[in-house]
Simulated scan of single mutants.
Amino acid sequence: MARKVLVLNSDYRALTVCSVYKAFLLVFLDKAEVVNQVENTFLRSVSQSFPMPSVIRLYSYVNMPYKSVMLNRHNIFKRDGHRCVYCSSREDLTIDHVMPRSRGGKTKWTNLVTACKKCNARKGDYTPEEAGMRLPYAPFKPSFVVFLRDFSGIGDDTWKPYLQTESIEE
């Protein structure tokens, strides 16, 4: 069962994503309620049928001071659509520092992009402008909710109303 369930805090803000199994346990143990369910799909036991949750809401508020998206290779690739930002290739992808590390560039969301090996080698130790390569957009750090909504690829339409409220953070 690869389907995922959006978990909302008691105030209806997106908290995390979990497996259907874990979501069902939270509902069954009366720690959460089903807000949306998958139509015509059920979880079955020997004697009972339960609606398959798509979105659940916790009954108790969980204090989450700040939820951010981890900076790693996989998440940079997701943000950039698994394509080289310079030529749109999907082959031999690497990470490129827009401002090269040798020239003081930091390893942070706003300085990293996905590049194929060919474009990365061509750019070398230059900025995109110096190398004559166009950067189609400025790299950015997505917020947790924006990342879930736009880049995770695991959501469904019933999640949309709960993932509209947060903006991109720098």
Rank of each mutant, 00 (worst) to 15 (best):
L15M: 15
V34S: 09
V146T: 04
E129C: 03
F24E: 08
P53T: 08
Y137G: 00
D150G: 07
Y12A: 08
D80T: 06
R83G: 03
Y162Q: 01
T94F: 02
A23Y: 01
V145R: 00
Q37R: 12
M133D: 08
S47C: 03
N120C: 15
R122E: 14
I76P: 01
T114R: 06
E129K: 13
S54A: 15
W109Y: 13
A23T: 04
D92I: 01
G105H: 03
H74F: 11
N36Y: 15
E170R: 01
M99Q: 14
L43T: 10
M52W: 02
K160T: 14
K123Y: 07
I76W: 00
C18A: 09
P51F: 03
R83Q: 15
P100G: 10
R103V: 06
E166A: 01
N36S: 13
S10W: 07
F147M: 12
P100I: 04
P53G: 08
G81H: 02
H97E: 00
S45R: 07
A138S: 12
Q164I: 10
C119Q: 02
I154Q: 14
K78P: 12
Y126C: 11
S47T: 15
Y137E: 09
K78D: 15
M1Q: 04
L163M: 00
A23C: 00
P51H: 04
S54M: 05
D30A: 11
W159R: 03
P53A: 10
L135K: 14
V20L: 08
L135S: 13
V35Y: 04
N9C: 07
E169Q: 10
D30M: 07
A14F: 08
S167Q: 03
T158H: 09
S88R: 15
R13V: 07
P142A: 02
D30T: 10
Y162V: 11
K22Q: 13
E91R: 15
Q164D: 07
V7F: 02
V69S: 12
R13N: 11
M1R: 03
M64H: 06
R13P: 02
S45H: 02
Y126E: 11
E33R: 06
